[in-house]
Design a binder for these strands. Structure first.
Lengths: 128, 128
DNA sequence: TCAGATAGGGATAAATTAGTCCCCTATTGC
DNA sequence: GCAATAGGGGACTAATTTATCCCTATCTGA
């Protein structure tokens, strides 16, 4: 298990936010859990780009931060279900705002992102 | 200059959002620029925890993604001012929402974050 | 009996991000 | 001439995050 070598800044709200939400798949995990995809295998199918291992780790962090709870059913094959905590639920509208912003500006965003990806930096005709 | 080795996912809005906002200091940079701290040295003073170099890099990315513009005044000593673009301005209310969420739940967040830091994981009395 | 589904984790590697160090430009001030 | 100021950036290292590989366990179905 990885142990931090530096102490995090915890000065402002954005620092705290970063501590709990900074993670490639965390927002999606919260979102999908809220949508009812509560089992690990379901989440994995919803987020095929992520490695199984990584989702487990991020779910664990969400759990440690009390944004989700993990319920284990003592059956075979094993069954686990994640649910949002009260705190986790308060994040849903926040994530919705983020998603809406991105959706609203989707074209623009795709545009500027693709520029960056290609960028052999040849014809820089971006005067205005 | 670093070049990516993997192609980013750009499926949903949250992917796009991540591409432009995923960066330790970016939200703060946008926020402070909006507050009127537009010169690099001012921003550096507002964010003492960040290395100068890193802020420059993240500012450059924000510029590439058209969230800020950089205006250079041809004077000596040099003067540079960042401003939010129209797109950048649309992010301010979004960042405000994030900040409000974190502020509202500040106590809870500090609590769970500090646990994680210490975490000898001894007394787990969190039944409900 | 063996594959598959379900859930999880250790070891390790790869990728990415953040940070440190030092150097450059040009001018003003001492 | 040298330091300070203002803004940058190359080279490199450290820290962190994400991904890969492989192994555990149990029951169901072919």
């Amino acid at each position: 298990m990885y142990v931090r070598k530096t102490t995090p800044n915890l000065n402002c709200g954005l620092d705290l936010l970063g501590e709990v939400l900074y993670g490639k798949w965390k927002l999606r995990l919260l979102w999908f859990i809220n949508e009812g995809h509560q089992r690990p295998s379901q989440l994995q199918r919803k987020i095929p780009g992520a490695a199984r291992r990584v989702l487990n780790i991020q779910l664990k962090e969400l759990e440690d931060h009390e944004l989700v709870t993990r319920k284990i059913y003592p059956v075979v094959p094993p069954k686990v279900e994640y649910s949002l905590t009260e705190l986790g639920k308060t994040l849903i509208p926040v994530i919705a705002v983020l998603g809406q912003w991105a959706d609203t500006h989707e074209d623009h965003l795709r545009n500027v992102i693709s520029k960056q990806t290609v960028s052999s930096g040849v014809d820089d005709t971006s005067d205005q």
